[in-house]
């Protein structure tokens, strides 16, 4: 299956993958909250089964993990992309607040299956039951056999991570693949998920997160609570006080873009491309570029990248089908008769 077909499966149908890029730790003990509160820049006042996206920072304020914290009764789950499970465990122990901290790596006992697409909820309801349909974004559901269904996609479409105990893996994956053909279920790669993440302007630790930037330059201040202290906070505040010089900005380019390419305005370099993908949905390349702050703004025409015309725009650049698919009104079987708007937005297309 080509990357284009994989992206189409995510954008229009259902798609799955084995998500070994997501590491999961179960955090418990009397020091669990205090430790997570110390390392997570986001506020962690969570109700049971609620999730909160955050980032984990090094002491110098740069991002080393794209993380989500989930409250599981009196325990917490920490889902992270970036570090290995061993690195994450070691880092948490290094920053533990108190000695009563239990960390359980779930990579030995569970597998993560990832499901995406505007119709993913319907397929998943057939596998796990109808409660999936009513799940709010950023919550999880406890299912039979110990599987946890986490709703927290990063593609702009309905997205779920299934934390499946090893003993249940064959059964859950088997049911998924048995029901899947009714929804044209396709197996997709991490590259396809990251492609969709960039089109929808979700932060990706493997791409723009690999350049040693802080949340200030990455446009991720919304994942930081302004009122709390956390690992890396002093460095972030110092960087802010000294003046942020660049910000990640979405650039549409009329031709192939290489990562690291200079972004030129009137012949002068104003920034560099950190990551880019060819968006067949838009018919042009979508790039995340680090631009001079005064020019890190949508609507600037007349840019040149790798010799091609380019302009800045407001992301996300996709009019996601999932915004228009309602579990109360639509079904996969009736999708052809539904009137859905095009996947491109007027300004970006």
């Amino acid at each position: 299956m080509s990357l284009r077909d994989e992206v189409d499966a995510i954008r229009l149908g259902t798609a799955w993958c084995e998500a070994s890029h997501v590491v999961v730790l179960r955090v418990s003990g009397a020091a669990a909250f205090a430790t997570l509160d110390r390392v997570c820049p986001a506020a962690l006042s969570l109700q049971d089964t609620q999730l909160r996206p955050t980032v984990l920072l090094r002491e110098d304020g740069t991002v080393f993990a794209d993380a989500t914290v989930a409250r599981d009764d009196e325990r917490y789950l920490l889902l992270a992309e970036g570090p290995t499970a061993a690195e994450l465990e070691s880092w948490l122990r290094q920053h533990a607040v108190g000695s009563d901290l239990e960390l359980e790596r779930l990579d030995h006992s569970h597998q993560v299956l990832s499901l995406h697409g505007p119709w993913a909820w319907e397929l998943l309801a057939a596998v796990l039951g109808p409660d999936v349909i009513g799940m709010p974004y950023l919550s999880f559901l406890r299912c039979e056999g110990g599987t946890l269904c986490v709703r927290a996609g990063k593609t702009g479409e309905y997205g779920y991570e299934l934390l499946v105990p090893n003993a249940e893996l064959e059964a859950v994956r088997g049911e998924l693949l048995e029901h899947g053909p009714r929804w044209n279920l396709a197996k997709v790669s991490l590259e396809a998920l990251d492609h969709c993440a960039l089109e929808n302007w979700f932060f990706t630790i493997r791409r723009e997160g690999a350049f040693g930037l802080t949340p200030l330059e990455l446009g991720l201040q919304w994942r930081l609570s302004p009122a709390k202290d956390f690992v890396g906070a002093a460095a972030v505040r110092a960087r802010k006080a000294s003046g942020v010089k660049t910000r990640l900005t979405c650039v549409l380019v009329e031709g192939e873009v290489s990562e690291g390419a200079a972004v030129l305005l009137e012949g002068k370099e104003i920034g560099k491309v950190l990551s880019a993908v060819p968006s067949h949905t838009l018919g042009r390349w979508v790039a995340a570029a680090s631009l001079e702050l005064s020019l890190a703004m949508p609507g600037i025409l007349g840019l040149t990248v790798d010799g091609h015309a380019a302009r800045t725009t407001s992301p996300p650049v996709i009019n996601n089908r999932s915004l228009h698919v309602s579990p109360q009104r639509h079904t996969w079987a009736d999708r052809e008769s539904a009137q859905f708007p095009p996947l491109t937005l007027g300004a970006a297309g």
Binding site: P53, Y137, Q221, P226
Partner: peptide
């Protein structure tokens, strides 16, 4: 929204995860 103006990222999502 409980933030300083310059702490509101221009590309931050308005709903859910963002603001």
């Amino acid at each position: 929204v409980q933030r300083e103006p310059d702490a509101i990222d221009p590309d931050a999502p308005l709903f859910g995860t963002g603001l």
